[in-house]
Design a protein around this nucleic acid. Sequence first.
DNA 1: CTTTGCATGTAACATGTTACATGATTCA
DNA 2: TGAATCATGTAACATGTTACATGCAAAG
Lengths: 177, 177
Amino acid sequence: MSRRSQTRLSVLGALATEPATGYGVRRAIIETLGHFWHESFGQIYPTLAALEEDELVERDADGRFTITKRGRDELASMLAEEPEATPPRNGLLLRIFFAQHLGRKRALELLESTADAAKKKLAEFDAIERAIDEEARPEAPFWRATVRYGVFHARATIAWVEETRALFEKPRAAKSR
Amino acid sequence: MSRRSQTRLSVLGALATEPATGYGVRRAIIETLGHFWHESFGQIYPTLAALEEDELVERDADGRFTITKRGRDELASMLAEEPEATPPRNGLLLRIFFAQHLGRKRALELLESTADAAKKKLAEFDAIERAIDEEARPEAPFWRATVRYGVFHARATIAWVEETRALFEKPRAAKSR
DNA sequence: CTTTGCATGTAACATGTTACATGATTCA
DNA sequence: TGAATCATGTAACATGTTACATGCAAAG
C-alpha cells in the first residue's frame, strides 16, 4: 500500500480551507500549491466522487463540495502519515550523469537553462511571499514555509550551477574519450 | 508526447557505460544513480526487449546486452532533449502547507525527521564523492556533479528546517527575510 | 454573437510498482 | 544442505495524463 493516493489528501486539504466545486478545487490547487503540487481533472472528479461515497465531503445546494467532520478527521490522520518517499526520478541529473555522451557544450547549455529557470522561480516566490504577508491569514506561517522551501532550493540550484559550470569548463578532467 | 519514457534513457545510459544483463542494469542504476533515479524489473525487462527490437542494443553470447552504434546515437539525441518537467508532487510540502490541520507538535516532528534524513544523505554523499575521486574515471566530473547536486539540496533542506522551526515555534515573528 | 471562463465527466492511453513464478549458481 | 544471490519474466494493479464531449453563463 506504499503508494497511497495523495490526491485525496490534496483535495481534502483544499476543501478544508474553503468549499468549492471540482473546477474550483483545481484552481485552488494551482493557485496555492502550483509550484509543488499538481492535479488534473481526470484525478479530481473521480476522487471527489469517492470522497462523497465515503462521506468525507458533501455536495451543497450550489454544487460545491464541503468537507465533513469525518473528512477533517481523515485529513488530520493522512497529514500525520509519513510523506511518501517518491521514487527519485530527476531528469536533469540523469542527463548530467550521462553528460559524457552529450558533449560539453550541450551540458553547459543545460546548466544555464537550469539556472535561468531557478532565477525565474525565485522572482515568482518573492511575489508569492509578499502576497501571503499582505493577506495575514492564520495559515500564513505554513504557506510561507512552503514558499521558503522553494526559495532555499532554487538558490541551491543556482549555487550548484555556479560550481558545476567551473567543473565542466576545466578541460583537464572533462575530456571525453 | 510530453511524457516520453525516460526509462529507455536510463537503460541505454547504463549500457553505454558497460554491457550488462537486465539484472545487472538494475544493479548498476541502483549503485550509481540510486539517489536520484529508480527503475524496477517490471520496467527494465520490457524496455530491454523493446530496445533490442529497435536494434539499439544487442544480446551477446553471455546473455548480456551491449549498446549498438544506433543505440549510442539514440542516447545522444535523448540526452539533448529538455529534461522532462516532472509534475511537481512534494509530499512534505503538501503536509507543511496544510499543517494547520496537523498541529504544531506533529509539524515540528515532521521538520526534525526531514532534517535528520537530509543529514544522513549528506554523509552518504560524502562517501560517494570520495569513491568517485578514487576511481578517477573519465566520467568522474559528471558523476561528481550529480552528487554535488545532492549535497547542495540536502544543505538547503537543513537550512530551511532551521528557519522554519523558528517560524513554527513562534508564529508571531513572521517578518524575517 | 462570439469568445472566454466555469463546470463536469469519461475513455484511452502511458507509466510504473508489486507480487509472484521459475530456475540456476555460488558459497558457507 | 540450505541460504543468498543472480537472473528472467509476467500479470494485476495503481496512478496519472491527455484528449475529447458537453453545456451554461458572463463579458466584450
